[in-house]
Nucleic acid binder design. Structure first.
Lengths: 111, 111
DNA sequence: ACACTATTTGTAATATTGTACAAATATACA
DNA sequence: TGTATATTTGTACAATATTACAAATAGTGT
């Protein structure tokens, strides 16, 4: 091996936190403004306890932070650079310029 | 709700493909050069069948592509912009400038 | 202290992911 | 046609992740 696996594990942890549709919705919403758990719950349409857990995951990853305001907890995007992911993701999704298939068992370009 | 969940599901699929340490190692290695499954296997230290599956996941996500060369299959990075993830991920990991904890039940700044 | 609202945590069920081993497939070459 | 090498696929198991419901906790105001 000789690869610093620990480093890649840590990186993967952060990316894992972004690897869920509900959490992506939350992140994009928080890029506009800080929001309460309740407000985010309406948005994503899951149980509030589930949304709270999603926020915990994002918080532990270092992507969002929060502050209390009375009985409410306001979450906000802490590291907005994660929004840059989206540009590349769209590029990947639209990668129609080239086949991803290595044409196994077909007559196809071989080197 | 009223959010285009399908779009976020698709985005999450791509990010999910990046959300694994072994696959991150593979992606970084492929950023240098195309490589065979066998060569990548030595690098990550997993069973070759497992590495083959990881490559399948990256391929289905549109992140890598491959071509055959005799009995070998050469994989290469198809959408290099995914490397941009790393900068932000490091920033998140080093986010030591601010607490992520909303200081529940502590004496702490409230608004 | 009590009631009300917002959020988090315990728990359990279900789904998804990661993994290795064995077997199958593909290709090259003697 | 065998044999050897490279890769993928079938299968099974363990580990993680997602989710809702119920209960616990925290804060506000009466």
């Amino acid at each position: 091996m000789s690869v610093d696996m620990a480093r890649f594990e840590k990186r993967a942890e952060v990316i894992k936190a972004m690897a869920n549709a509900a959490r992506l919705v939350i992140v994009e919403e928080l890029s506009r403004n800080e929001k309460t758990v309740g407000a985010l719950t309406e948005l994503v349409g899951l149980d509030i306890s589930t949304v709270s857990r999603h926020l915990m995951i994002l918080r532990h990853a270092g992507i969002v932070s929060c502050r209390k305001n009375g009985t409410r907890v306001l979450y906000r995007l802490r590291t907005p650079c994660v929004l840059n992911f989206f540009d590349c993701v769209e590029k990947v999704l639209n990668g129609d310029d080239e086949s991803t298939d290595c044409c196994l068992s077909d007559s196809c370009e071989k080197t």
